[in-house]
Design a protein around this nucleic acid. Structure first.
Lengths: 207, 207
DNA sequence: CGGCCCTGTGTGACTTTATCACTGAACCTT
DNA sequence: AAGGTTCAGTGATAAAGTCACACAGGGCCG
């Protein structure tokens, strides 16, 4: 159960060796995997749970850059691991997560000895780069009401979601007031109901 | 003269082998290294010149994501090379450039056999990821007049620059009208003079 | 040379988004 | 029940994006 597909691709002796040196770390909801400025301790392999990565700009505003889920790799850490620079973003655990922390030495060894491991790392990097490019486009050109709508739409399944307007503003990289006003408008249209710290889907959403 | 530092780190037999299989490709100003949707032919190592990478969103608007110069690696290509997906962005040559195109097979071999090569690739990836994160923050939170000012400031040395308002809008991911109005304002303040397709620095800028 | 056309720029009117400064409501604590 | 803290609502104003169109510079061609 506690495994990560990128380790499963390793040839048997190497896989054993890697797993023997790693014990899963448990992170609870709300805990911080790393903060802006922290030095990198190793490459986190996310086994389960979800972790959001967000950054705070010079202006003091924050925006969520991407999320990691089961079987994900914290690609952002690789650069820090290599250059020794600190993180520019922070990683906040949303759903309780378990993580393998691969230290620099082991990472180098796996990169050296397994083509599949290298492939996994590269693919992960590629996906992250793509995600960020799409985010740039979204932030630069898409309208806020559409973006908010899509964000909500992706979470309709849950019926009710627990989030404050401020947190939602960070998700989209905008101001709380903007989110409040748009939500009010959605409520007027009968798409949802607003409560303190909660949004309940109705009407069109609750299909 | 025609060399790339990531190849110079290779141990001697490998370096000779790599170089013997690569001939520099010449790209002129305005030519396209790759377009959105193109399959990836190999990993471009930029020897000299400059190349801008920009993407066009669903909305039809474009934005410049980053630039590559001498000794740079087109990190974006690695993801495409690995997954076989097409590019999401396009690369336009600004100053005439020469490029080594490393084919998949050689790339795999270099990744397999040289720790320094791996390090170079990883560092490049890390930098690109950082750049994009900063771009997200900039687009999301910084004011347009500041961003335009900084863009111009970075090019003051040239005295006069040749660029249309439309191109400048793509640099910043905004609309031409916005650029035109801001430039007019800078002109009123005596910072620069506008001519058709040109901007001449004066006053504060021409210190 | 004058007329034509294409590209680049200027501008007004209007919408959307961001910012600022508050008010008030909901919940928690004691 | 009182007081404090966090969350949400709102008006006023500024910044940025959108739309529609006028006009200007420069090249080309009859």
């Amino acid at each position: 159960m506690l495994q990560h597909s990128i380790l499963e691709t390793l040839p048997e002796p190497l896989r054993r060796e890697a797993l023997s040196g790693l014990q899963p770390l448990h992170f609870e909801h709300g805990s911080i995997l790393f903060r802006a400025g922290d030095p990198c301790q190793g490459l986190p392999l996310v086994l389960n749970g979800t972790v959001k990565v967000q950054m705070t700009g010079l202006s003091g505003h924050s925006i969520v850059l991407y999320r990691m889920g089961a079987d994900d790799i914290c690609t952002l850490s690789i650069g820090c691991l290599m250059t020794g620079d600190g993180f520019r973003a922070e990683a906040v655990v949303e759903d309780d997560a378990e993580v393998f922390m691969v230290p620099r030495g082991l990472f180098d060894r796996l990169m050296d000895q397994s083509a599949d491991f290298r492939l996994g790392i590269m693919e992960s990097y590629g996906r992250r780069l793509n995600d960020l490019m799409l985010l740039v486009e979204e932030v630069a050109f898409r309208r806020m009401d559409e973006r908010l709508f899509q964000w909500l739409e992706a979470r309709v399944g849950q019926g009710v979601i627990t989030i404050t307007h401020q947190e939602l503003a960070v998700e989209l990289g905008t101001a709380r007031e903007v989110v409040s006003r748009l939500l009010k408008e959605f409520e007027r249209k009968g798409l949802l109901r607003i409560a303190r710290g909660k949004i309940e889907f109705t009407g069109w959403f609750a299909s």
